[in-house]
Amino acid sequence: MTVTIYHNPACGTSRNTLEIIRHAGIEPTVIEYLKTPPSKEDLAKMIADSGLSVRQAIREKGTPYEELGLADPALSEDELLDAMIATPILINRPLVVTEMGARLCRPSEVVLDILPADAFTSAFVKEDGEAVLDAEGKRIV
């Protein structure tokens, strides 16, 4: 299975998502989106494929969201996408794309929705100690 994760290694949710993917026996393509942001078209497609609006996929916390005036409801999705590409920290993370779909994986276990369930055969615990998969690889949360 081909998996791509738009990853920020400084983010615990992103690290947990990456480890869940690897726990499935998949080595994903890892794109550190702060260094290599997606194209506007790719970002728009990932967001749409995730079932989100652009506004739902924009990150507010720890970003210049307010300073850039992005809370203005009159801004179009196109304008918000332009801001996300110009300032990649505004892209909420991690975004994961597989053949089964695309998701904004917040919380990290959302990635389980787009990975084959039979890929998991053992327990998985997140960095903070929260169990995600039981000893048989079945989803707990």
Rank of each mutant, 00 (worst) to 15 (best):
I91D: 00
S53F: 05
G69Q: 09
G62P: 06
E136M: 09
D49A: 15
S53P: 04
E27K: 10
G129L: 02
D72Y: 04
V96W: 00
V132I: 13
R139K: 08
R55F: 08
I20S: 11
T121Q: 11
I20Y: 07
R22S: 04
S53Q: 07
G137L: 04
Y33T: 04
R15L: 13
E27H: 07
T36Y: 05
A24L: 07
T121H: 13
H7T: 11
G101M: 00
G137R: 00
E60N: 10
E41H: 08
F120Q: 01
H23G: 10
I58P: 00
V54C: 10
R22H: 09
V30S: 10
G62N: 09
P64C: 08
P38V: 05
E99L: 05
L115I: 13
E67W: 03
G129D: 04
P28G: 07
L80G: 05
E32I: 10
L70Y: 09
G12R: 14
D72F: 02
Y33G: 12
R59N: 05
L90Y: 05
T63Y: 03
E109L: 06
A86P: 06
E66K: 14
L68N: 04
L115E: 03
P116M: 07
I91N: 02
A74W: 02
P9L: 09
A83P: 02
E79K: 13
A131M: 14
H23R: 02
I114G: 08
L34V: 10
L115N: 03
I21T: 03
A44Y: 11
A135G: 08
I21F: 08
R103A: 13
I21P: 01
E136N: 14
